[in-house]
Simulated assay, not measured.
Amino acid sequence: MANTKLIVLAFSLYIMLLPFVFDLANAQGLTSGFYNLSCPSAEKLVKTMTEKFVAHAPSFAPSLLRLHFHDCFVRGCDASVLVNSTSNNTAEKDSIPNLTLRGFQIIDAIKSALEKQCPGVVSCADIVALVARDAVTAIGGPTWPVLTGRRDGTKSLATDALTELPAPTMNITQLKANFASVGLSVKDLAVLSGGHTIGISHCTSFAIRLYNFTGKNDSDPSLHPNYVALLKKQCPLTTLLTSIVEMDPGSFRTFDTHYYSVVGRRKGMFTSDGALLTDSTTLAYVQAQASPQSSTFLTDFGQSMMNMGKIGVLTGTSGTIRNQCAIIN
Rank of each mutant, 00 (worst) to 15 (best):
L13R: 04
L13P: 03
L17R: 06
L17V: 10
V21L: 14
V21M: 13
A25Q: 10
A25Y: 11
N26C: 03
A27I: 00
Q28R: 09
Q28Y: 08
G29D: 11
G29A: 07
G29T: 09
G29C: 04
L30G: 00
T31F: 10
T31E: 14
S32Q: 13
F34N: 04
Y35F: 12
N36W: 08
L37H: 09
L37K: 11
L37W: 02
L37C: 07
L37S: 15
P40R: 10
S41V: 07
E43W: 02
L45F: 01
K47L: 02
T50W: 06
T50I: 06
E51Y: 06
K52C: 08
F53G: 01
F53S: 07
V54I: 15
V54K: 02
V54E: 01
H56W: 11
A57I: 00
P58Q: 07
S59P: 09
S59R: 00
S59W: 00
F60T: 02
A61K: 01
A61W: 01
A61D: 03
P62V: 00
L64N: 05
L64E: 04
L65E: 07
L65D: 05
R66G: 13
R66E: 04
F69S: 09
D71H: 08
D71A: 08
D71M: 12
C72D: 08
F73Y: 10
F73I: 03
F73R: 02
R75E: 14
R75D: 13
G76E: 05
G76H: 06
C77R: 09
D78H: 14
D78E: 13
D78V: 15
A79T: 04
A79C: 11
A79R: 09
S80L: 13
V81H: 10
L82V: 09
L82S: 15
L82R: 07
N84W: 15
